[in-house]
Nucleic acid binder design. Structure first.
Length: 886
RNA sequence: GGGCGCAUGGCUCAGCUGGUUAGAGCGCCGCGUUCACAUCGCGGAGAUCGAAGGUUCGAAUCCUUCUGCGCCCACCA
């Protein structure tokens, strides 16, 4: 093994080995308990970013842990066709060739996208592989593959027949650049600084004017009324009279509607039914006909003055303002901050647009999904997202599912040109079911990409067929994703799952944070602040990336990354590597271990280590079960680095290197192997590559069936905590030993004593059990504190001149001829005395308060009393030491 | 406008159901290359836990208000 861990080569080697041995291929005939999850399918034309790295690391940890815990695991992998996003990518590419999709035509264009899909697909999947995700590649799916497409059609038809899908003319969010409808969720509202324009609309009878306020002046060309609140005394007398709409010279009525807020703006609202959802609602109530003044590219059109025709909406806005100004009809223009909807794929400002679209009626579907959350059959991690979810569900609105693009599942609806019948069918009809005509036209639109995503947990397993896979692995258990897509995807999957399969598709929803840069900005390509996970993998390895991510963030909290974040993982990999290198180096050729040494051959340090290990196993298991992966990572990091490497390995070196007592040496070796191996098993879900590599080295030299129980660690058993090994008394004893050693080291360091200068120590013990404990570890104290000898006893005489320290009541005196600096000691003692005194004061104060002694539990009071007693004794000893120095 | 989250040493964060002398990593300072690891070891300095109230014998931890930052939702033109 090399001196430093180098992930290059190793990662690919193990990935290939896992694949060849089909380790992650789920067996649908298994008799084991099953565990399944589905990956949030990445956009097929996407590239791996830190969010993916985080998301997939979390899932991989869950899945590998379950696999090692005896479950048959299915992790479904696949990609999403991502309708608008992918179409945009390809259209942009076409633009470079000076082509539009219309130049190619629908069929050729879709072909072209498929080509792109094939090419990009390789990118994202190879990137997922490099992360180490243990997905079942043999069952990879794509949202537009045959099976999933069949599922989409099945669900569409079924919802239509159940009266849960309808078509109609409504105001929807429209992206003029993508030229398609969007759902409410796809229009992102971002705060922006705009203007509120106040226009004077002349009354038709010339008797004055009404001032209206708008943020979108261009829409005035489509105004069909001015609305006021019926209770507004300022305008009540005008209700029923008319306005002469400037520039277009159309006579429009003044109407009364409760929607109008008297206190906002002027209290008079211009009504543009075709281009504003509220205005549309008002118009519905007042039987006003919408006048469309923009086309699908948000270019001005319709019954408007010619000079505005063909203008872009924003250019037109300027013109309108200029023209109204010229007419003296602009009252004021003020700054106005408001949230403007933007297309989530291209950030173009969305335009409310009046058009024919398909919708899913959501309320009936939401009812059951809401009930599941309320009955706690769904658990959110962290819990607070439950409220976000239920709030959304309770206020759910119908879902616009038709998109005016070409890449996606074409809506399975046909219109008969002869009899105008509407045919909704899972299979392509050839003749009209009503009039036998063959003149059928399929609906031009495709479905929202999320209409296939919401079926993902079961469509990927073969549904609507009751395949063996579906029967065995559906429903899944946990679903891990970012909170951003709680509504887009998670909520909808729950609804679809209940509707289609009568079951919740998963019960645990694990939401991790958003990946941000150091200054808190979301990492994104457009901001240029993203750290490419592949760069990190290339430099530090996938394991370092994964482990660092897990160490950096608490459950559900956002992840703030800087380039040096990944040193945590890199350094830890190296530490592990070297720990293994060391342990392996102590094995001459091969070794067979049948069991741990019997208890009577274990000393305090061994029992301490095994106790720490068992506690760590239990804590890790519990952290993993509640998806607190950072907690598990931290526990493993601490136990590996600080307990095992810093103390235990150092302690056991004496036994490992000594050759006189072969049994002792073998015992030490077995114990080190046991602890290291156990830690590595737990670390494997976090850092699969390096551990698999180390595991292979262990396997080469060691036979130890209780530990090394599989060819690949991916298939080995996850450690189980052994209650019998937990020993708090021994842990406390060893902690005392550690603290004594540290105290002596501190005294040495503060006195600047060179490492080669050894000293002697006298330890005056506080209790008989401390005497026993310290005496048992006497040799170690001498070795680790660099002493020629330590004398331990209850009644030792204080040396005349020495450095001194108190450890849990035990006095530690360090003698080093001519090397102890009196001044240093005086300062340290003074500081220590001051600290002790202030502690005594506060403790005494507490104990003197009858409120405390009367109301606090007896054991808490007793503890305080004990503390005070100890502190007082410490103070006395410190003062003695001070006196002795003088 | 409604909801949620975060404010802990120079930096990045832990701290789960209230009771420790408030932890870690990075950075900093000192010492160190004896044979696992300088991507290392040993030691140290550095925090009145955003502010003000409150509950409690006791609060970083619970409640209220405030300030700052962030996120989500929402049809005030």
């Amino acid at each position: 093994m090399e001196k430093q861990y180098d992930p290059k080569g190793i990662e690919n080697k193990w990935h290939d080995a896992w694949t060849e041995n089909k380790l992650f291929v789920a067996d649908e005939k298994t008799t084991k308990p099953v565990y399944s999850v589905v990956i949030p399918p990445p956009n097929v034309t996407g590239i791996l970013h830190m969010g993916h790295a985080l998301n997939n690391t979390v899932q991989d940890i869950i899945v590998r842990h379950k696999r090692m815990s005896g479950c048959e695991v299915l992790w479904v992998v696949g990609t999403d066709h991502a309708g608008i996003a992918t179409q945009n990518v390809v259209e942009r590419q076409l633009a470079k060739e000076k082509l539009t999709r219309h130049d190619l035509g629908r069929e050729k264009f879709v072909e072209r996208v498929w080509e792109w899909k094939t090419q990009y697909h390789a990118t994202i999947t190879s990137q997922l592989k490099r992360l180490g995700t243990s997905v079942d590649w043999s069952r990879e799916r794509f949202t537009m593959d045959e099976g999933l497409s069949a599922a989409v059609r099945k669900v569409f038809v079924s919802l239509y027949n159940d009266d849960l899908i309808y078509r109609g003319k409504y105001i929807i969010n429209w992206c003029p650049r993508c030229r398609t409808a969007l759902s409410d969720e796809e229009a992102e509202h971002k705060d922006s600084k705009g203007k509120l324009y106040h226009f004077k609309y002349p009354l038709a009878d010339g008797s004055g004017h009404v001032t209206v306020a708008t943020t979108r002046p261009e829409t005035m060309l489509g105004d069909t009324a001015v609305a006021v609140n019926p209770t507004d005394d300022r305008y009540r007398y005008l209700i029923g009279s008319h306005i002469m709409l400037p520039l277009v010279n159309r006579k429009i009525p003044i109407i009364a509607d409760d929607f109008v807020d008297k206190s906002f703006g002027t209290g008079a609202v211009k009504v543009t039914p075709a281009h504003d959802p509220n205005d549309y609602a008002i118009a519905q109530r007042h039987y006003l006909k919408p006048i469309i003044i923009m086309d699908e590219g948000a270019t001005m059109t319709g019954p408007i003055p010619d000079k505005y025709k063909g203008l872009d909406r924003f250019a037109c806005r300027k013109e309108i303002v200029a023209d109204l100004t010229a007419l003296g009809l602009v009252d004021t223009i003020e700054d106005h901050d408001h949230a403007v909807g933007q297309c989530y794929r291209c950030s173009t400002v969305v335009e409310p647009y009046y058009s024919d679209q398909w919708f899913v009626k959501m309320a009936p579907l939401a009812a059951k999904a809401l009930a599941a959350a309320k009955k706690n059959t769904i658990t959110f991690y962290p819990e607070r997202y439950k409220k976000t979810y239920t709030d959304w569900m309770e206020n759910i609105r119908d879902w616009c599912i038709s998109r005016q693009i070409w890449w996606g599942h074409r809506i399975p609806v046909w219109y008969c040109d002869e009899c105008k019948a509407v045919i909704v069918s899972e299979t392509d009809p050839t003749i009209c079911t009503h009039c036998d005509s063959t003149k059928l036209r399929q609906d031009n639109d495709v479905l929202d990409t999320w209409f296939s995503s919401w079926l993902w947990p079961f469509s990927t397993m073969g549904w609507p067929q009751h395949t063996d896979l579906y029967k065995k692995f559906y429903p899944t258990t946990s679903l891990t994703t970012a909170p951003e897509i709680l509504f887009f995807w998670v909520a909808r999957m729950l609804m679809a799952g209940i509707y289609c399969t009568k079951q919740l598709p998963f019960t645990d929803i694990v939401l991790h944070g958003t990946v941000r840069d150091k200054s808190g900005r979301k990492m994104s390509k457009s901001l240029g602040n993203s750290i490419d996970p592949l760069d990190v993998i290339n430099v530090n390895g996938a394991d370092a990336l994964r482990f660092s991510l897990m160490m950096t963030t608490a459950q559900g909290a956002d992840v703030y990354l800087s380039p040096d974040t990944f040193e945590i993982g890199r350094n830890f990999c190296n530490k592990l590597w070297n720990a293994a290198r060391f342990v392996l180096g102590t094995i001459p050729e091969k070794v067979t271990i049948t069991a741990l040494p019997p208890v009577f051959r274990l000393d305090g340090a061994d029992i301490w280590m095994l106790s720490r290990l068992s506690k760590t196993i239990a804590a890790v298991e519990s952290a993993l079960q509640t998806y607190r992966h950072n907690e598990a990572a931290r526990l493993l990091y601490d136990c590996t680095w600080h307990d095992f490497c810093d103390w235990y390995v150092e302690l056991k070196k004496a036994d490992l290197y000594q050759t006189e007592d072969a049994e002792k040496q073998a015992d030490a070796r077995a114990l080190c192997i046991h602890v290291l191996g156990t830690l590595q098993k737990m670390l494997h879900p976090f850092m699969p590559f390096i551990i698999e590599e180390i595991w292979s080295h262990l396997r080469e030299k060691i036979t130890y069936n209780n530990l090394i129980d599989a060819q690949f660690i991916s298939c080995a058993s996850f450690p189980k905590s052994n209650k019998d090994q937990i020993n708090d008394a021994i842990e406390a004893e060893f902690t005392l030993v550690q603290n004594v050693i540290t105290a002596i080291r501190t005294m040495r360091a503060e006195n600047n004593i060179p490492p080669d200068k050894k000293g002697t120590a006298k330890i005056v013990t506080a209790t008989p059990s401390d005497l026993a404990s310290l005496t048992a570890h006497k040799a170690r104290i001498e070795h680790f504190a660099k002493l020629t000898s330590a004398t331990i006893g209850a009644d030792l005489v204080r040396p005349s001149f020495c450095a001194s320290s108190i450890v849990a009541g035990n006095q530690v005196f360090l003698e080093l001829e001519g090397l102890i600096d009196k001044q240093v000691e005086l300062e340290r003692l003074a500081k220590e005395i001051a600290r002790t005194q202030s502690l005594i004061e506060s403790t005494q104060k507490r104990l003197e308060s009858p409120a405390f002694t009367g109301k606090a539990p007896a054991e808490v009071v007793a503890k305080e009393e004990e503390k005070l007693c100890g502190l007082k004794s410490n103070l006395e000893k410190l003062n003695q030491s001070l006196a002795a120095l003088h």
